[in-house]
Structure formats: C-alpha cells, structure tokens
Nucleic acid binder design. Structure first.
Lengths: 242, 242
DNA sequence: GGTAATTTGTTCGTATGTATC
DNA sequence: TGATACATACGAACAAATTAC
C-alpha cells in the first residue's frame, strides 16, 4: 500500500506509522498471530530511524494490539472479537460463528434481596429473593467477559442446578419451563475495571471495561433475566446492526 | 425503599451504601442536581457512623456521580444521559427528546488522504482526498462527546461551508444533494481518554471513553459518512433496542 | 549441541521543532 | 526577544533473546 510520511504536518512521524499499522491490521493484511516485518524493514520502508518505528510499536503494544518478543519479532496480539448485539445474542453462537472456541465456567452463585434497580428491571417486588449467577466466558483460552445474572428465585427454584449441569442459560431456562427468550434492551457504558475483575479478566488495573446491562424476556414479553456484563475492552468490540 | 445492611458478608458497609445510592439514582429517585439527604440522615437511616456514609459518598464523587459542597450538601452531579442507537440516530433529536438542550460547535476541519481503514468503510480509493470535520457536542452546558467525521471530498466539495452555516450534518448533506441518510452499522469499544479529548470533554486523565464508530448511508445504500465518536463514559449510556 | 545470524531491547549522544513564560 | 522545558527524530553501539544452520 502506498502511504507516505508527512513531515512537518503537525502529526508526529511515529504516530503516522502507528496509524498505518493499525489500518493494515484493521484491513486484514496482518491477522491475529501474524508476524510483522522487522523494525529495520519498516524503518527502511518509510525511510525513518528504527527508534521512530519502535515508538509506533510501543504505542500499539500499550493498546494491546501488538506484542513484541525479544529475538523473535513483533506479532499481532489480538484483533478484537466482534460481538453483535441484537434480539438473539447468545455467547456461544457468536463465538463459534467466528471460528473461535467458546468456553466458560460458573464462578459463583448466591441468593440476595432485590434492590430497586433489579426489581424494576425484572418487574418484581423490592426485597423479594433473587438468584445470582456469576459466569466467566473464555474465548480460545483468553477470558473476555464476566457476567452477573439475576433471576426471580420464586419462579426458577431449580435454575442454579440446571445451569451447573448444562453450562448454558438457554438450556437451564428450558429445563425451568422457558421455551425461548430474547433480548429486549441493552445498555452500554464504560468504567475502569474493578479489583475483582482484574483477576478474572486478566487485565491491568486502570484499564477500561465495557459495561453491558441487558434484560431477557420470554415469548410473553415477561422479564426473565437481568444481566450485567463486564467485557475486556481491548478484546471485544460490540457491533450494533441497524 | 427497604434495604438492609449486611454486616460481615464480605462486602464493606460503605460499599453497600454506595450501591444503594447508585441504585436510587439509576432508578430516578434522585435526578441530576437533586440534593441528597444529609450525611447524618443517611447514617441514621442505616444505623451506621457518619464516616461510613462519607466513605460511600467519596467513592461516588470519585466516579463523578456526586458532588459534595461544604456547607451546602451533597448533590447528584450527573445522571448519565441515555443515547439510543439505531438507524435514525440524530444527536439533537435525542437530546431534545430528553428535555435537555443540545448545542455544539465545529472545532476543526481538514483535508487528508484516505487510509486503508476509512477508504474501506467509505468504499473509495486509498489515498483519495477526504474531508474531516471535528465537532464537540454539549448538553446543558456539559461536553458529552467529540466526533470526527470523514466524507469523500470529490463528492461533497461544499460540505464544510454548509456545515459551518447550518451546524447540522443532516442539513449540510441535504444542501449537498443527500436527501436523507441512515446508520448502517455501529461498533462500540472503550479506551482511555487521550490528551486532546481530556481538554475537550473536561474529564480527568485515565478515565474511560466510549468509542463509537459508525457508517451512515444514503437511501441507495451508498456510504456517505464515517464517524468516530468519543463519549465521556460517565455522562452517557448507550441504549440498544432490539 | 555449538555457533552465527537475526531481531528486539537499552543506552549513550546530537540536533531540531514547539510551547510557555 | 530570550530563556527554558519538553517532545520529536536521528545515529551508533551494544546487550539479550531467539532462531537457523
């Protein structure tokens, strides 16, 4: 691709090279795991010093896009996974559809009283008992999201056991009499990762996470599940089709 | 609302109070600008020491949700604004629909050559000239998002002038012959705010921003506009209906 | 298995452009 | 205008890790 470096144009040379690299990766020239040209080759290609290339690579390493191994080379660390959001958002289907291997495990359950926020979302009484299930979702061995889901306990007494057995909310809810469900509303925000999720998601303190809150409803449009998901922002990209 | 404090349950009391406050604000009990009960009243309500309440308020102040003024009281600083995402996403319509006052200003324009990423999104040749327009959008006096939009220059030579005059992409594109447009795809991720946007969005370094990338298409489904928006994560919440 | 070649990492120094007071 | 600080860019040499032969 023909890209020239604009000197004295108000944009630092190292930044222009970083942008070029980013565009090449986004365009698919370098896929996840691919080895980049050596620093010297890139420097020769743009007729700049190797330090300048190193600065560009350092910037993208900081973003988690590249990984440089001494003696081996520089590699594309992670093209963020696309995560479409729609009425039929199902983690395992999304991941399998992108030639990746999904897995997950339940990391905790509990019973608690509904606060105003969750009671409103699930259309139940404040203070009524709730089931809480926390799950960690992993793609190709890398943790990508942690989800906390709440259900009305009175309606799904056997849900925790069913989920523990099947490992799938879709299956567990079917065993509890919910034939199908769909996503009604999704709210997206961003926060800094908290200390618990640092360990679970294996990301550094001070990095951002996407917060996705959603409500699933049964075919009668009755709320079934309220979920708050924290996603490693450097490993996932939400896609909203419209 | 009946909420009890669970002592010795692994969750610090101050955190439980902070969560309660957050839920009340999210639920709408306290709207933006509302004065909270005094620290003493909250302390009495939960039968905890005032220091415990202060710790909860300090945590939410750090998140930018509350603002405590000595001698006056504690106030809700910012209920995050809802920002629906769909085919007809228009900033001013969204803001006006929530009883808030939108404004904005153009903070820069330029001409640059299309890199691989943007050329692909706009279906044009790499290296062809692009118009770039940067805008700052403000709600009730508070900056909420910065957007950078790119257009094919050959197709819309008079766009910058039209936008400067009308202050609206919808109007400016109409003057350039695009009767209507709709949003085709929206990609959402999160990053840490960069040094430029710190000043524009008036947020602290190290805070997260939502990155929203979108493509607008004309009625013939031809790409017209590619936009990359950075939103202050503590002031906005994306809502995806499905 | 040993050695040379390759590639990234580190540390000097020098020069220039830019922003601020 | 000058002084100062800081970021940017280049150059040379060497260290450390990995790979290839």
């Amino acid at each position: 691709m023909q890209v020239k470096i604009d000197r004295g144009a108000g944009i630092a040379v190292w930044r222009q090279i970083a942008e070029w690299l980013k565009a090449e990766i986004a365009q698919g020239t370098f896929v996840t795991g691919a080895k980049l040209p050596t620093e010297s080759d890139i420097a020769a290609r743009f007729q700049v010093n190797r330090h300048t290339v190193r600065r560009a690579i350092a910037a993208l390493t900081g973003e988690g896009l590249l990984r440089a191994d001494q003696g081996r080379g520089t590699f594309v660390a992670s093209t963020p996974m696309n995560y479409p959001i729609g009425a039929r958002t199902r983690f395992s289907e999304i991941v399998s559809g992108q030639d990746k291997t999904p897995s997950g495990r339940m990391i905790g359950t509990g019973v608690e009283d509904a606060d105003a926020l969750i009671a409103g979302q699930l259309q139940m009484q404040v203070g009524a008992p709730l089931l809480r299930i926390e799950t960690l979702r992993v793609v190709d061995g890398t943790p990508v999201l942690v989800g906390t889901s709440w259900f009305e306990q009175a309606r799904f007494p056997g849900l925790v056991a069913a989920y523990a057995e099947t490992g799938s909310f879709t299956e567990a809810l079917r065993l509890c009499g919910v034939e199908d469900y769909s996503r009604r509303e999704t709210r997206v925000s961003a926060e800094l990762v908290d200390s618990q999720d640092i360990a679970l998601l294996e990301i550094a303190a001070g990095q951002p996470v996407l917060i996705v809150e959603s409500v699933n409803v049964d075919p009668q449009d009755r709320p079934v599940q309220y979920t708050r998901t924290r996603m490693a922002a450097d490993r996932i990209q939400l896609v909203v089709e419209s």
